[in-house]
Amino acid sequence: MAPISYYLVLAIIMFFIGILGVLIRRNALIVFMSLELMFNAANLVFVAFSRQYQALNGQISVFFVMTVAAAEVAIGLALMVTIFRTKHSIDVDQMNNLKG
């Protein structure tokens, strides 16, 4: 069995990569994937602590977070496809023009 510190370090690295992707990249799809990476890092922490303390609360929380994330992916990708059809780009800087 690996110690919990390994899981926490991996989650921190994943979360940091997600933050860099959100802050540096301008492509909406890359930003969207970076957000999902940050969600998965949080899920890894929930599962690691759930395993450490032999409680199912963390794993149940991960199940609900993944369910909401799946719905978010479906809606987010549908919005990106719609924006791409109208603007012919999914650049984050150009989405500022969508304000009404």
Rank of each mutant, 00 (worst) to 15 (best):
E36F: 11
M1C: 09
I13Y: 01
A78S: 12
I75F: 11
S34A: 15
L20N: 14
A69I: 03
E36C: 07
I13Q: 00
R25K: 09
M14T: 14
L44W: 01
A69Q: 10
I90N: 06
F46Y: 10
F46L: 15
I17D: 01
Q59W: 06
V73H: 07
T86M: 08
G21Y: 08
L29D: 05
L35P: 02
N40H: 13
L8T: 02
I13V: 11
I4Q: 06
D93F: 08
Q52E: 15
L29V: 05
T82Q: 11
N40F: 12
H88N: 06
T86S: 12
Y6P: 03
Q54A: 14
M95F: 14
M38Q: 08
A78Y: 13
S5Y: 15
I19W: 03
I60S: 08
F15C: 14
F16I: 14
V65I: 12
Q59L: 03
K99Q: 10
F16C: 09
A48C: 11
T67S: 03
S50F: 04
F39T: 12
F16E: 07
G100F: 05
N97T: 15
T67P: 00
H88I: 10
S5C: 09
K87F: 15
Q94C: 08
A55F: 07
L44I: 06
F84H: 15
I60L: 06
A69V: 00
F32K: 03
F63C: 00
V47R: 00
L44E: 00
H88T: 09
Q59V: 02
V47D: 00
L37Q: 04
G18W: 01
V73Q: 08
A42K: 10
A70D: 03
F84G: 09
N97K: 11
M66W: 13
Q54I: 08
S61A: 05
A11E: 03
A11K: 05
Y6K: 04
L29R: 14
I13M: 03
A78T: 10
G18D: 01
F63H: 01
L10N: 04
G18Q: 02
L37H: 02
Y53V: 14
V31Y: 02
L98W: 08
N96M: 12
L29A: 09
F15V: 11
N27A: 07
V62K: 04
M95D: 12
A78I: 06
F16G: 10
D91I: 13
L37V: 10
F63Q: 01
D91A: 09
S34E: 08
L79R: 03
P3C: 08
G21R: 10
L44Q: 06
D93A: 10
M14E: 07
N27F: 03
I13L: 07
I19G: 13
A70E: 06
R85P: 00
L56I: 02
V45S: 15
L23A: 12
A48H: 02
I12F: 14
Y53G: 13
P3V: 11
D91W: 05
Y7C: 13
R85W: 00
A78L: 13
L10K: 04
L35Q: 06
N57L: 02
A71L: 15
T86I: 12
I83F: 11
